[in-house]
């Protein structure tokens, strides 16, 4: 992780939150998608965001990656405010990787080129070095033999694993995963979840929006339930799934159980 220390503040000081969000508001036109979200994530913590579609999970992740400008509130990453004037968004994004529901691989590039593009063009890493570390990452996630393939020759699960590797290639300290298994056929979900489990074991700080309750129960240190753009309830999974305090959480989980998703 040496390349990460090149940032303005060296490493993450002990006790600094990986992510701190205060009273975040975001509207699309008249519709307020996030209405006062506050959340703190410690280094190496894995947090799952659950909630119905439209509850604001994706928008929250996109705001943290600065893909959406926020209306009010503040976001601090590794102790540095990223929602003020004069923030180098490209620097921030190199430290916060995001993976989307729809993979979004670059279809005109091979797997290897997909993974090496950002290290070479954003981090100015020499080609040989970028390819070597990309090959290592691909091998680690069982994609070594797919290096020369184009994305349309891969299964959905393989594409999503490549997308995760691509995000990891710029050596981020935080990963945001936006419903990364929602677009996959059921039999392909497990291989992607295994990758995320491995990242969690390796100590990656992650914020994961997901509909996979079993996975959330399994991998998360903490689960946040969102409704109408607010975090209604947050607790360790054992507590939130078995003994939810808020009536809205109870209603949501009842529906999930009825739908056979848990």
């Amino acid at each position: 992780m040496s390349a990460l220390r090149a940032g303005p503040e060296a490493g993450q000081a002990a006790g600094t939150d990986a992510i701190r969000i205060e009273d975040l508001h975001k509207s699309f036109g008249p519709h307020e998608v996030l209405s006062g979200v506050s959340l703190t994530v410690a280094p190496h913590e894995v947090i799952c965001l659950i909630g119905a579609s439209g509850s604001g999970k994706s928008t929250l992740l996109r705001c943290i990656n600065l893909l959406e400008p926020i209306d009010s509130g503040g976001i601090w990453l590794l102790g540095q405010q990223v929602t003020g004037p004069g923030v180098d968004v490209n620097m921030v994004r190199r430290r916060v990787g995001i993976v989307f529901q729809s993979f979004n691989l670059f279809p005109h590039m091979t797997v290897l080129r997909n993974v090496t593009l950002a290290p070479m063009k954003a981090l100015r890493m020499p080609k040989a070095e970028a390819e070597a570390s990309a090959s290592d990452l691909l091998a680690r996630f069982g994609l070594a033999d797919k290096r020369a393939e184009y994305p349309d020759r891969l299964s959905g699960g393989q594409q999503q694993r490549v997308a995760i590797v691509r995000a990891l290639a710029v050596q981020p300290q935080i990963m945001l995963l936006d419903e990364v298994t929602s677009a996959l056929d059921p039999e392909l979900v497990a291989e992607v979840l295994d990758v995320i489990r491995e990242l969690a074991t390796a100590g990656m700080t992650m914020l994961i929006a997901t509909h996979e309750m079993g996975f959330a129960k399994d991998v998360a240190n903490r689960v946040c339930f969102l409704e109408d753009g607010q975090i209604v309830e947050q607790a360790p999974p054992a507590e939130l799934f078995t003994d939810p305090k808020d009536e809205r959480t109870q209603r949501f989980l009842r529906r999930i159980v009825q739908a056979g998703r848990m």
Binding site: N65, L67, V89, N90, M91, R93, R94, G97, I98, F100, S102, N104, L105, F106, L117, A118, K121, A122, L123, R166, A167, V170
Partner: peptide
């Protein structure tokens, strides 16, 4: 989404 994906990598 292609632009979002590219920008999200810090490009």
């Amino acid at each position: 989404s292609q632009l979002a994906a590219a920008r999200s990598l810090g490009l």
